[in-house]
Design a protein around this nucleic acid. Structure first.
Lengths: 157, 157
DNA sequence: TATTGTTATACTCTATAACTATA
DNA sequence: TATAGTTATAGAGTATAACAATA
């Protein structure tokens, strides 16, 4: 039988002066999400001149370092679902940053390659990404940054 | 003048055997996002019995440790926009986990409190969250986990 | 005049089912 | 029969503008 929705400690209708987040701050997920959000926010700002969102950057970077990569391989590597990648690649193709070429051995698949324009853009964009790392290293100290990345990899692999 | 969308290195239409993600793995944002995703995925599974999504958990946990907290304070602490919090709190109120009470000093504001049912649920849910931490400590070693959380806090604060 | 809570609404992101062409 | 790419579409998450009540 449903009980009435009455506060557990109903007597003092107190006000909260400063919010206590100490319990949440003990949780790895909470801290990882907030850190990811902080970094990605800066990333978005720095990539705006290139008109690249984080996903676009990841896609183009993988294409750059894996010329001929297929959509399926991109989806697996980045955790994107195939239907959601189609529109991204179409947009990047319309901007003449990537080009689709027939796969040498599999007639169903399509290999993705950077165009000269895409190569030029990504050379600058990856340089910008590397500079962002350097800036966070200032917040952290180079060895702490290396340590952090090592630990993060242990978490997700 | 627009150049034709021709691959930069067009000669060998090569296939990619194994995807090289080494550049992305040097980036803090990429690693932080993947780690957050990994932890949150497990979190979602473990919280399913309580029918709590990560946001619901965060909201209820802050209400638990800050009885009388206002919507505005929740939004600021969790980075949620006010219009998007309304529906969550309504749903939690309908489940009789939280109750709204008039704010003692500000007639515009509403203080949020856990009901007895909400208190009981969150006692178990926070215990489950703490166990999840312990499981990840197994992946990492307790001192590495503490170190990781410390470094993550440095990143976002 | 500014702020809290709210509604309405739009835009993005993510997820599922189903089709086609090749294997 | 299974897989790569695609389409259509639905749902969740996130964003802005505007309003009523109160400060």
């Amino acid at each position: 039988m449903p009980r009435p929705a009455v506060p557990a400690r109903s007597n003092p209708p107190a006000a909260v002066e400063e919010v206590d987040t100490s319990f949440l701050e003990t949780l790895l997920g909470y801290n990882a999400r907030r850190a990811a959000l902080a970094v990605i926010t800066v990333f978005v700002e720095r990539m705006a001149p290139f008109q690249l969102k984080p996903v676009d950057f990841s896609v183009l970077s993988l294409v750059r370092h894996n010329p001929g990569i297929t959509s399926r391989q991109l989806c697996t590597a980045l955790g994107i679902l195939p239907p959601n990648l189609v529109g991204m690649v179409n947009a990047l193709e319309k901007r003449e940053l990537v080009a689709r070429q027939p796969h040498p051995r599999d007639g169903r698949a399509v290999g993705l390659h950077l165009t000269a324009r895409g190569e030029k853009l990504m050379r600058d964009a990856e340089k910008t990404a590397a500079e962002l790392e350097a800036d966070f290293a200032a917040r952290l100290s180079p060895s702490e940054l290396r340590n952090l990345i090592t630990l993060l990899k242990k978490v997700y692999s």
